[in-house]
Nucleic acid binder design. Structure first.
Length: 502
RNA sequence: GCCCCCAUGGUCUAGCGGCCUAGGACGCCACCCUUUCAAGGUGGAGAUCGCGGGUUCGAAUCCCGCUGGGGGUACCA
């Protein structure tokens, strides 16, 4: 047996009606992974056939989202390719030609019914408890009747002439065979009266013209698969492989996740401080698993190990908790510190913490060190500026009470702080071990528990009660600034005592 | 209403007839580590594998029905 395997060509074909959301992103990811794994082509095609819902800004938003995720396309907008153009609005001729062919071969017919009549029809059907659907009023018009309508100036739509009986079945890669009774199918519109194709026509013609071998798309397209199958067959083309990705549901499971669900937009996730690696990894794990325990996958891992056949056909809920965990895991353990710091830098600038961070500058070194210290507390990139702020600038004023640990008297905190200040002044902060040894010893000398001594120092130097380890913090803040901040804290405490004494 | 898809702890899943007294992860709880907060480590609670029938020596795994959930039902994609 000779198996001639055609080179894989797959596509992601969004319609420009809004931002890319997680459902679409996952479909794009799986499609991309399949292409890369089989060294095939990943094509981006813009399905802009709905003039009413067209939103120009969304094209940039979608491409930016895909690029952010690292899903680079081989053919598509901007870069072109051998099967272009990649905007359906620029392929109208092609659809017209194909519709004419269907018309000539009696696989389609012109329909002159007005939108009003169709709406009325649906109303009646609903009222009568009948399933809504086109009544095929124009399916058997005579040439004379058609000419009469044309003479009235009515612009027809073209409808698919679905077989009245029998069944249409096709194979879904994840689900196996799916069969539909033709009698339940509609004579769907293929070409609208404005000359634009509907999705059904355009997707089939373009998938054929672009040599698509595997049709990957969301599960919501399963109901229209028979229509597409009928078209592929009518044209006499060899059907591609179909693989419908399960929908992603809202966290509560009630309905599919939509653009209205806040962070469902990829750009929103990016702006909220998610790493693209984490988002990719998480999305891959929704509906797919490699084995019973591996869950951290880089893009390269996924390209190597992903398998379309192993995608689960059942819908999954979007779990923000898990995504958050994944994000934090990447920040804490996967992405290296230099890289992480580089991603925090733009945020530092936009937050006004620094004017700029030139490459190789001391500021850059400081940022890298600071990020290294705080990264285990960082869940989102956007938390970076706040978490490292006291390494870059003086901490804003804080409540003096923070300097006094629980079960500690203000004068005890003051006593410890003064003693610690002198120690730092004497031995500096560079040798963390030495500082720790001296300060631990100091605690006993001034009759304080280590916590009671360390916390006031921490608050003095960082302006907050949570920070990285005290000694590394002191070192990176540096001796001079640490001392100044401790002096400031001492002054605050002295004033505080005076007030408290009143 | 009609058509289609799906069904393992709260969630994401492993499992594709005997390795399952069902494994992993998130979340939750406890403990450990500890100068704070995290991170990390250990342990725990949590699933009669939606229900009912079959098939089989044997079913979470195969078949049928039911129920539940989801999707579709436009001159939108």
């Amino acid at each position: 047996m000779t198996t001639t395997t055609k080179p894989v060509r797959v596509r992601f074909a969004p319609s420009p009606t809004g931002d890319l959301h997680v459902g679409g992103a996952r479909t794009a990811l799986f499609t991309y992974l399949y292409a890369r794994q089989h060294e095939g082509a990943f094509i981006l095609r813009i399905e802009d056939t709905d003039q009413a819902r067209y939103d120009e800004a969304s094209i940039n938003s979608i491409t930016a989202s895909l690029r952010w995720l690292g899903l680079d396309w081989d053919e598509g907008p901007d870069i072109g390719g051998p099967s272009g153009p990649y905007f359906q609005s620029e392929r109208l001729e092609l659809y017209r030609e194909h519709v004419d062919r269907l018309l000539a071969e009696d696989y389609a017919y012109e329909c002159y019914c007005s939108p009003e009549r169709l709406a009325e029809l649906r109303d009646e059907q609903r009222k009568a408890g009948r399933p809504p659907g086109y009544d095929r009023h124009c399916r058997n018009l005579t040439d004379e009747e058609r000419q009469a309508k044309r003479d009235e100036g009515i612009k027809p739509v073209v409808r698919l002439k679905v077989p009245l009986d029998g069944a249409t079945s096709g194979l879904d890669l994840l689900r196996g065979p799916i069969t539909f009774e033709n009698a339940k199918l509609e004579d769907a519109v293929l070409l609208k009266s404005d000359g634009f194709p509907t999705y059904h026509l355009a997707v089939v013609v373009d998938d054929k013209e672009m040599g698509i071998t595997h049709v990957t798309r969301g599960e919501e397209w399963i109901p229209s698969m028979p229509l597409h199958l009928i078209l592929w067959d009518a044209f006499g083309w060899e059907r591609p492989v179909f693989a419908h990705m399960p929908v992603i549901l809202k966290p509560d499971g009630k309905g599919k996740l939509s653009k209205r669900d806040g962070a469902a937009s990829l750009l929103a996730l990016r702006d909220e401080g998610y790493l693209h690696e984490a988002v990719v990894n998480y999305l891959a794990m929704v509906g797919w698993a490699y084995d019973d325990h591996t869950e951290i996958f880089s893009m390269d891992d996924l390209i190597e190990k992903f398998s379309l056949e192993r995608v689960s056909p059942s819908p999954a809920r979007f779990n923000y908790d898990k995504l958050e965990w994944m994000n934090q895991h990447y920040i804490n353990h996967i992405v290296d510190v230099d890289d992480l710091a580089a991603r925090v830098v733009p945020l530092l600038v936009s937050e006004g913490l620094v004017d700029s961070v030139p490459e190789g500058s001391d500021t850059e070194k400081l940022v890298i060190e600071a990020v290294g210290l705080i990264k285990d507390k960082m869940k989102f990139l956007t938390e970076g500026p706040d978490l490292i702020s006291y390494f870059l600038a003086e901490p804003p004023d804080y409540d003096t009470a923070l300097l006094v640990p629980r079960k500690t008297e203000p004068d005890a905190a003051l006593r410890g702080l003064k003693a610690a200040r002198d120690v730092i002044a004497e031995i500096g902060v560079e040798d963390e071990e030495a500082v720790e040894a001296r300060l631990r010893a100091l605690a006993g000398e001034v009759d304080l528990k280590v916590g009671q001594l360390f916390m006031p120092i921490r608050v003095a130097v960082t302006g907050r009660t949570a920070s990285p380890g005290l000694f590394e913090t002191l070192r990176v803040v540096n001796k001079e600034r640490s001392l100044a901040r401790m002096d400031r804290a001492i002054a605050k405490l002295e004033g505080y005592e005076a007030v408290a004494a009143d």
